[in-house]
């Protein structure tokens, strides 16, 4: 489903990714681990076409995403749901409105939006918070809102960039269980993290990156 072929990314003299080749199949849950500055975020940003690689090919299905036109990027991004460490919720919108934004940009009708947002908020168990603003939420609730926003458009892939980074261990577990559940429906999940405990407990595929290179790629791997 996702194929990186000899992908490199340089920012001036700095090498963020160095000849990365990897394949992720539909429905996989993959941890991308490594120290800060290893290239995890660059890998995810290339996947969303926020940045272009300096070299190599990236395929999503049959589409080489390095070759899609600028005008096609919005449509392409609708296939990907994104979750961030700092949630990136809009402070002046309620939980409901934050989640609805995904569907609004897709041009869905108000009726459809109401139905899908309600369904998703119930799924992530924050329906009762629908009218609250982000500042009124706990970290876990904010991240659940961000996850709801990522999945409400039914994307093929969810990219989570250190989603538990700002959460306490208990809340972090709740978020991981949610991502795990989303994966169980057939959605591919790529998650970058530093959290050893989570990686080691979940026993999923682990890709370890260091200085822009893949140094290990193991099924049911561990992060040591």
């Amino acid at each position: 489903m996702i194929l990186f072929e000899n992908v490199s990314k340089k920012f001036g003299a700095t090498i963020a990714l160095d000849d990365i080749t990897l394949e992720v199949k539909q429905g996989e849950f993959v941890f991308i681990v490594g120290p800060s500055g290893a290239g995890k975020s660059s890998l995810l940003k290339i996947l969303t076409r926020e940045i272009l690689p300096s070299d190599g090919k990236i395929k999503l299905g049959n589409v080489d995403i390095t070759k899609i036109k600028t005008s096609e990027i919005p449509q392409f991004r609708r296939k990907i749901g994104m979750v961030f460490q700092d949630f990136k919720l809009l402070d002046d919108r309620t939980v409901f409105e934050n989640v609805a934004l995904t569907l609004e940009v897709q041009g869905k009708s108000d009726e459809e939006i109401s139905k899908l947002v309600e369904h998703t908020l119930k799924l992530v168990e924050i329906w009762d918070k629908k009218n609250l603003f982000p500042r009124q939420l706990s970290g876990g609730e904010a991240q659940r809102t961000a996850i709801a926003r990522a999945i409400v458009g039914k994307p093929d892939i969810v990219l989570a960039d250190e989603p538990t980074g700002d959460l306490d261990p208990k809340t972090a577990w709740g978020v991981i269980q949610l991502l795990n559940e989303i994966n169980s429906w057939g959605t591919t999940v790529l998650m970058s993290t530093h959290n050893q405990e989570i990686v080691n407990s979940l026993k999923r595929r682990v890709i370890k990156i260091k200085a822009g290179k893949i140094i290990s790629d193991t099924k049911e791997g561990k992060y040591e």
Partner: peptide, 14 residues
Amino acid sequence: RNEIEIMRLLGASP
């Protein structure tokens, strides 16, 4: 700009 950035990532057209 944050809102614009988020909308862009969610697939909003220009």
